[in-house]
Each structure stands twice: as structure tokens, then as C-alpha cells.
């Protein structure tokens, strides 16, 4: 493992470096995925790494009252877990961040990195998708925004183009009457990777009918996948075990997992149904408390 290493002091400087190195350069923040990937030959070793973790602006985590949540690109999972006031409104995100890897990995690995690596099983992706995160991306010709739902293109592939970088993730304030939750399944209780993960967001109207539902499944498709058919089926309905079960079945039908060393496709499909039910039920319970 050998590469040149540059510390960027600002987003502008990072952009300039990326421009200079072209496809021979790569951004590093926590490096937990990148360094291991380089060592094991999963990634071609870049000639230059541009470290963005010293840029103050990118390490900001702001949960201002009533103003949503802003997660800088280099905010770590550990920082999200430890920050006060986040769980109350964004429990799905905290549940995801607190299950990634181990305490040590969480202190180093960034939420932005987890998103940009775009592993199909990315811990935080389903939660951020259902929380309708907007990704702010800086590029040579200025900044642009994209809904996280549109951001993932395939395993290790995102909408970020050469010369661009993620600056932050913006979550808007969850609506009154809404709730969200995240569940994952893995053999071990720590130091593990999701066989399947599911996040759900629901919003109830005053009659307790589902007015907005968002379900996102991980590790069952090349990218985190919205269970849009299940979402639609729930719209306007009120909570019942039957409805939740149906939603789980629709999510299962929607999923397209593969068989690998961690689980078979068949098992993953069935587990999507189970975790979808659990995530929806938990999100619903939370929504009721938030009426």
C-alpha cells in the first residue's frame, strides 16, 4: 500500500486537488473501507489520497431546533450516536449509526463515506433515504443537490462524478405525526454487516391513516431500494397487523437479492418481509407518540 497523501484545508482546495489528480486521485475521510479495500485489492491503489477530514466545515453536525439536521461529509457514525437530540427525531439514523461495525470503527468511519462507498448493505443508506436526505455535492462548476434516493447507481457507484465531492447531507425536520425506525439482521450483535437492513418512515394524518410512507431496503439489490409498491399500498390505510404483513410481502416481492457467502437470496427475501414489518411497526408506534 503506497500512495501520496494530501490534506485539504478547505472544500475549494480539495476540489483543486481532485482536479489536478483526475482519476488517479481519491478522497479519503475515515478510510475504514478504502484502506482495507486497497489492502485486499478490492480497489485499485490510487496514486494520491486527498484527506478531507481536516476541513472544519465538513465535520459539522447541526441539529438546530426545528431546522432539520445537517450532517457534514466527514461526520462520523460515532458523532451521530453521541450527539444529543438526534435520536428523538431521527431514531432510524441513530439506530443505523450505532450498529455499524464496532465502537472503534464508528469513531473513524464517516456517514458520508458510508454513503459514497455505496455498498448494497451500507448501514446508513436506508435510514437516510427514508428520512429524505438531500446530498449536497460540490463540483468544478459549483454545487448541486440531489435526493439521496437518486444518488446510488450500483455497488460502489454513485451519482458523484469525477472531480466532485459530497459536502453534506441535509435532513429536513420530520413532520408532526411521523415516525421512523431502522432494523438490520446479522449473525453477530457487533462487528458485523447486514444480511438485510430496512428503514421505514411513516406519517399519520389526524385520523391515524398513513399519509406518507417510505420504506428502504438494503442488501437486497445493487443499490438501496425503495419498496415503492408497499408504500403505495399503505397510503390512506390505517394500521393493522394485516396491512403491515401485506406491506412486508410487497417489499419482499419487490426485492432482488443475490445469494452470497452471507445468505441465500431466498432467505434475504423472507427477511426483508420480517424487517419491513418490524420497521413499519416501530415507526408507527413512534408516529403515534408524535401526534
Amino acid at each position: 500500500m503506497k500512495f501520496a497523501y494530501y490534506k485539504a484545508e478547505s472544500v475549494q482546495e480539495a476540489m483543486a486537488m481532485l482536479g489536478e489528480f483526475g482519476d488517479k486521485g481519491k478522497i479519503v475521510a475515515g478510510g475504514t473501507d478504502l484502506l482495507v479495500g486497497i489492502q485486499h485489492g478490492k480497489y485499485a491503489a490510487p496514486e494520491a489520497l486527498v484527506d478531507i477530514s481536516f476541513i472544519d466545515e465538513l465535520s459539522q453536525l447541526n441539529a438546530q431546533n426545528g431546522d432539520g439536521l445537517s450532517i457534514g461529509a466527514t461526520v462520523t457514525h460515532g458523532a451521530v450516536c453521541k450527539a444529543p437530540n438526534i435520536f428523538e427525531k431521527f431514531p432510524a439514523l441513530v439506530e443505523a449509526c450505532s450498529q455499524l461495525g464496532s465502537p472503534q470503527v464508528r469513531n473513524l468511519a464517516t456517514v458520508g463515506g458510508n454513503i459514497c462507498n455505496a455498498a448494497p448493505s451500507a448501514e446508513t443508506a436506508p435510514a437516510l433515504v427514508v428520512l429524505k436526505a438531500m446530498a449536497r455535492i460540490a463540483g468544478p462548476s459549483g454545487e448541486r443537490q440531489i435526493e439521496l434516493n437518486e444518488f446510488f447507481l450500483g455497488p460502489s457507484r454513485t451519482d458523484i462524478k469525477q472531480g466532485e465531492m459530497l459536502v453534506n447531507l441535509q435532513l429536513s425536520e420530520p413532520a408532526q405525526g411521523s415516525g421512523n425506525a431502522y432494523f438490520r439482521l446479522s449473525p453477530r450483535n457487533a462487528l458485523d454487516i447486514a444480511i438485510v437492513n430496512v428503514a421505514a418512515y411513516v406519517k399519520l394524518n389526524k385520523d391515524y391513516a398513513f399519509e406518507d410512507v417510505c420504506i428502504c431496503m438494503g442488501a437486497v439489490a445493487p443499490t438501496p431500494l425503495r419498496a415503492s409498491i408497499a408504500e403505495k399500498a399503505m397510503f390512506g390505510e390505517t394500521f393493522s397487523e394485516k396491512l403491515i404483513r401485506e406491506a412486508g410481502q410487497l417489499a419482499k416481492t419487490h426485492s432482488v437479492p443475490i445469494t452470497d457467502v452471507r445468505a441465500s437470496a431466498e432467505y434475504r427475501k423472507e427477511m426483508v418481509a420480517v424487517l419491513t414489518e418490524r420497521a413499519l411497526t416501530k415507526a408507527y408506534e413512534r408516529a403515534k407518540l408524535n401526534m
Binding site: Y5, K7, V28, G30, G31, T32, L35, V36, L49, D51, P103, Q104, V105, N107, L108
Partner: peptide
């Protein structure tokens, strides 16, 4: 706490 095997020296 950090895994020092994943922390670049810089």
C-alpha cells in the same frame, strides 16, 4: 478509541 491499523499516520 480507534483501530490504529486503520488510521493513516498523518
Amino acid at each position: 478509541p480507534y483501530n490504529s491499523c486503520l488510521v493513516l499516520i498523518a
